[in-house]
């Protein structure tokens, strides 16, 4: 009897472990291209392309002279290179769509990661308003203020 209880307990623990591992899987491929990492990371953390669909990245990369209120223009050759990397690694490229496609309607192209339904759902309940007002955070684009490994694609630390 006590032997059976032990087996049940072990099984239950394993289910819990596997479950929490799945839920905590907030890891994204770190940006492997040095040009993309350098240029996109000059003013803000270089966001992983997996966080927006192709259509969004296309619009963003075609509009760098007016990039969220600043001129972020680059040489055309550089723009082409960075755009290709983003399209190849976007949320909706590859065989399976990434998490950031969840809840996005067909063809929609949010221009901010913070406007995607997935991002909103992950942050709204968990993050208190006062955290956003912290001067060290300053902007919702400042992932690394709270997710210390964000630039390496690691967002499990919440």
């Amino acid at each position: 009897m006590s032997k059976n209880t032990g087996i049940y307990l072990t099984a239950a623990a394993m289910v819990l472990l596997v479950n929490s591992a799945v839920q905590a899987d907030e890891r994204y491929k770190p940006i492997g291209d040095p040009i993309v990492a350098r240029e996109c990371g000059a003013c803000h953390m270089a966001f992983q392309p997996q966080m927006l669909p192709k259509k969004s990245w296309g619009i963003i990369m075609d509009g760098l002279p007016n990039h969220f209120g600043e001129d972020a223009s680059l040489e055309p050759e550089m723009v082409r290179h960075i755009k290709k990397y983003h399209l190849d690694n976007a949320a909706d490229s590859g065989l399976f769509s990434g998490k950031f496609m969840r809840g996005l309607s067909e063809g929609s192209a949010p221009l901010r990661i913070t406007e995607t339904p997935y991002w909103v759902r992950e942050h709204n309940e968990e993050v208190p308003q006062r955290a956003w007002k912290d001067p060290k955070v300053k902007s919702k684009a400042n992932c690394i203020a709270c997710h210390r490994g964000a630039d390496q694609g690691y967002y499990d630390d919440d």
Binding site: C43, H44, M45, N66, F68, G69, E70, D71, K136, V137, K138, S139, A141, N142, A145
Partner: peptide, 26 residues
Amino acid sequence: GKPETPSCTTCHTANPTGIGQTRAGK
């Protein structure tokens, strides 16, 4: 220029020897 950046000091602060901060917090 753009309304978000009325001056160099918006991001670089008024003190050239000080550490600045981009609008995105970097």
